[in-house]
């Protein structure tokens, strides 16, 4: 089980601050979000920073970053920019 935390618009779209999702990769999390909360939520999640245990997935293996049970995934909007 992966703990997934939502921030920003995603919280509104999913209606919850966090939930548990079964997944082996980051991309499966996005898929699961799409299934549970609709396409719009999945699209929004793709536009966000995805942090796996405090590390930016972009610096790991992007959407192919592997996950294991007990991992924490935080999905945070790009607000504040770079």
């Amino acid at each position: 089980m992966i703990t997934v935390k939502y921030y920003g618009p995603l919280r509104r779209l999913t209606g919850m601050p966090e939930e548990e999702i079964e997944a082996n990769r980051v991309s499966e999390i996005i898929k699961a979000i799409g299934k549970r909360h609709g396409k719009e939520a999945a699209k929004e999640a793709e536009k966000c920073f995805i942090m796996v245990n405090g590390r930016n997935a972009a610096l790991l293996n992007g959407f192919r970053t592997p996950l294991k049970s007990g991992d924490l995934v935080q999905i945070i909007p790009l607000t504040g920019g770079g």
Binding site: Y7, Q74, I76, L78, G80
Partner: peptide, 24 residues
């Protein structure tokens, strides 16, 4: 620009906070 035209206006500098928290 996304950053100077949108994000900083919407959330100000504290828009960084969630990201900082998640990044430790």
């Amino acid at each position: 620009h996304q950053s100077t035209g949108q994000d900083l206006g919407l959330y100000g500098t504290s828009g960084f906070l969630n990201k900082c928290n998640a990044s430790g």
